[in-house]
Every structure is written in C-alpha cells, then in structure tokens.
C-alpha cells in the first residue's frame, strides 16, 4: 500500500495507447489461423488461410516488442515511480502463479493416471472391473503396452477404439542419461543467475554480464539436449505423442516446460542485451532483471518436479 512519500509523486497513468488493440488483432489473427490450419490438416483439405497463423504471430510478437520497448523507455524517463514498480512486481508474481497452476493441471493429470486410472484398467482396486473391457492389460508404469494393444493381442475388440491407434514404445526414457545431466545444467543455471543478481546488487556489472551469459549458455545447452533427447525418443525408442498415456504425459509436461525454458531464455537474452549494450539496471532498480530471474527460477522448480515425477519415480 502506498505511503505518503509515494503520493507526492503521482502514479503514472499512460495516455491512450494503440498497443493493446493491435496486440489483440495480432493475437486473434494468430489464434484463428491456428484453428483454421489445424482443422484443414485434420480434414486433409488445402488451407487457403495458412498465412494467418505465421502472419498473425509475427504481428503479435512485433506489437509485444513495441509494448515492452515502450515500458522500458517510460522507465528510463523516470515515469515509473516506486508504486508503479510495485505494480509491475505484483503483476509478474501473479503471472508466475498462473503459470504454476497451468503446470499443476498436467501434474494433476499425471498423478491421477498413475494412482488411479492405470491400476483400474489393469484390474486392481475399486474399479478393477474396467479390466473386463481391456483384458490382457497389466497395470505397470510406464505401461509396456496400451490397453488397446493388450486387447488386440488377446484377440478382443472394442467398438469405440480404432485398431492400433495407440502403440506403446518398446522401451522408455531413462532418467540417468540426458535428463540427469539436464537437471544438473538447469540447477547450475539458477545458481549462476542468482550470483548475477548478487553481482548486480554489488555494482559489479562485468561479473553480472558474464554470469548472465553463462546462465543463458546453460539454458541453451539444456534446450539443445532436450531436443536431442526428443529426437532419440521419437526415432530410436518409438515414443511418440500417439504412444498412449505415457507418451501423452511425457511430451506435454516436458514440452510445455521446454517452451517455458525458451521463453525464459528469451527474457534472459533481452536482460543481457539491456545490461550489456544499454547500461540498464541499477543496484536498486532492476525490475526487468528481477522478473526474468524469477521466471527462470520458476522454470527450474518445474523441472525438478518434472524430473521426479516423469523420469525418476
């Protein structure tokens, strides 16, 4: 809440701005284009509107670029008083909370599947009766075959399922190789980022830049290794999105995490560029740095949960 000293400097309420409306145009075009493209692909039709998705997305990103640029310029002009900076801090914190809840939905799904669905389908527990529909399916995690494969093998049929729709991979992703290395990389990147922050607060800008760059490099290595692991899983292991519930949860959890690492890396790149080339951020006032840093730590925490629940357990 505001103290008297803040009240002396008025809260900056921006003038009219075209940015939000233009951002909406970009977002709506991009999203509508995504829908049209997906539907055309599913129906096997040619897609006359295929430019909407990339075009809208590019426009959307360009507007956001302008928008963040405007905020940064306003900040440099000294328009953002302490109270407005607190608004930004609150905005970022609650945004990260919303991201936490997004991941929560997928972790909830994974937990429910592992604790209830797979055992029931395998004939265990309260609803083991479900196994009558999928005779031959055994409850194990990761499943060596999907219920449908088990049924096909047992020579049974199910009216609702198309034959061989879901094929479980012959083997699954091990935690001990790349995932463990990736865990170490990402945890180290949080440490380097923390010390970059410490360096910033201590006014050691050179050290801050180096540590930021190091964080970014660790993050990029993580993404590269993750991409390589995906490639390995798709081609060598045969683990795809269509591999049943294990593939579904594996790819959506790690995939959305990977996307968030990329967004975090983008934020860190902008932060590094601002620090290195524009001389932004002071030991007392560095919201942009702080926001990118919080986001990165959040992505890191999600990975730890993911490493435990997807790979290890």
């Amino acid at each position: 809440m505001s103290s008297r000293s803040d009240a002396e400097q008025t809260y900056y309420v921006p003038e009219q701005s075209k940015l939000p409306f233009l951002a909406t145009i970009g977002l709506a075009t991009f999203i509508y284009g995504a829908g049209a493209t997906l539907n055309a692909a599913r129906a096997g039709d040619p897609d006359p509107m295929s430019w909407l998705l990339p075009g809208g997305f590019a426009f959307f990103v360009a507007v956001l670029w302008q928008w963040f640029g405007t905020s940064i310029r306003e900040h440099r002009l000294g328009l953002a008083n302490a109270q407005l900076r607190r608004s930004y801090v609150l905005g970022m914190q609650w945004f990260i909370f919303s991201e936490v809840m997004f991941f929560f939905a997928f972790f909830l799904a994974l937990a429910y599947v592992r604790l209830f669905v797979v055992p029931w389908l395998g004939g265990e527990g309260d609803h083991g009766l479900a196994n009558r529909l999928w005779s031959g399916f055994a409850a194990e995690w990761p499943p060596s075959q999907t219920p449908q494969q088990a049924l096909d093998a047992a020579g049974g049929t199910q009216l609702t399922a198309r034959q061989s729709e879901f094929l479980a991979p012959p083997s699954t992703v091990s935690w001990s190789g790349i995932p463990l290395l990736n865990t170490i990389l990402l945890l180290s990147s949080s440490v380097t980022l923390h010390f970059a922050h410490v360096a910033l607060r201590g006014g050691r800008r050179g050290a801050m830049n180096v540590l930021l760059a190091l964080t970014l490099a660790l993050g990029m290595t993580f993404v590269a290794l993750q991409a390589w692991e995906y490639h390995h899983a798709y081609t060598d292991l045969g683990l795809t999105l269509k591999s049943g519930i294990y593939g579904s949860t594996f790819y959506l959890l790690t995939g959305f995490h990977g996307l968030h690492v990329c967004i975090g890396a983008l934020m860190l790149s902008v932060t590094l560029a601002r620090a290195r080339f524009a001389g932004d951020f002071t030991p007392e006032d560095h919201f942009g740095f702080q926001a990118a840093s919080w986001y990165w730590h959040f992505v890191d925490v999600v990975w730890v949960c993911l490493f435990l629940s997807v790979y290890l357990l």
């Binding site: 997906l38 429910y112 669905v117 389908l121 449908q148 199910q158 579904s248």
Partner: peptide, 16 residues
C-alpha cells in the same frame, strides 16, 4: 487428443 493423437481422455491409450 483431437489433433495430435494423445490419449488423455481415451481408455484405449491408458487415459480416462
């Protein structure tokens, strides 16, 4: 589930 073949809500693939 609709466009990319996952099986969150399909028992045939181990979902529910």
């Amino acid at each position: 589930d609709i466009h990319f073949g996952t099986s969150f809500f399909s028992a045939a693939g181990g979902g529910d």
